[in-house]
């Protein structure tokens, strides 16, 4: 028990000493006066929340050309960092969103846009799915119509009906065979009962005759 407490205490002290060490460095930092050149300043993220918001809204619809399946807003590639920086600068310079997008399209082409503009080269991109859907719908309609004609074409003659009836009977008989066999015993029992009834009826008739 003692050793467990000692162990926990030692661990806690280890952690505490690290925290104290870090705090010490932080506190000593301005006193020691390390110059700013010795470390690289982190990229300022949200200098102005308004700019940041506009930049994010813009970059969500822009493709990172290095990672291609990521938007510039999502990507951490160097390329995307640069584009974000450029967009921030342009927003600060009071450029409109359309102007900024044009600036990028001029340099990187329509590929940079996730929402490609309607052009002669992008017609297939925009209407391809619709064309595919229409082709699919036409094929489906044609197929269904063909099937309806097939179903209507079959007209049964009386002869056919008889054949069908015969086949169905045959089927019923064969299906009933096992049932019949299973019930054989009870049937024969019934039969015997009926026979007995008949004989008794006959005998009563005979009795009647005698009476007459």
């Amino acid at each position: 028990m003692m050793t467990l407490i000692q162990c926990l205490l030692r661990r806690w002290l280890d952690k505490a000493s690290i925290i104290i060490f870090c705090l010490g460095i932080l506190l000593a930092y301005p006193i020691l006066g390390w110059s700013e050149e010795t470390y690289k300043e982190a990229i300022p993220v949200a200098e102005d929340p308004e700019i940041e918001k506009r930049m994010l809204a813009l970059t969500e619809d822009l493709r990172c050309l290095v990672c291609q399946n990521e938007s510039i807003a999502d990507s951490r590639a160097d390329f995307s960092n640069d584009i974000r920086r450029i967009i921030r600068e342009q927003i600060k310079a009071n450029k409109t969103d359309a102007e900024i997008v044009d600036f990028l399209v001029e340099r990187y082409g329509d590929f940079v846009l996730y929402n490609p503009p309607m052009k002669a080269t992008t017609v297939l991109l925009w209407f391809g799915p619709l064309i595919m859907f229409l082709i699919g719908a036409l094929v489906l309609i044609k197929y269904l119509k063909g099937r309806r004609v097939q179903i209507e074409d079959v007209v049964l003659t009386d002869n056919d009906r008889k054949k069908v009836a015969a086949l169905l009977d045959e089927k019923e008989i064969t299906a009933n065979v096992s049932e019949v066999e299973a019930n054989n015993e009870s049937l024969t029992q019934n039969f015997i009962n009926k026979e007995q009834q008949n004989t008794s009826e006959v005998s009563t008739e005979e009795d009647k005759g005698k009476k007459i």
Partner: peptide, 9 residues
């Protein structure tokens, strides 16, 4: 090649 993005320039 998807990396070969035709340049508008």
């Amino acid at each position: 090649n998807p990396r070969q993005v035709p340049s508008p320039l």
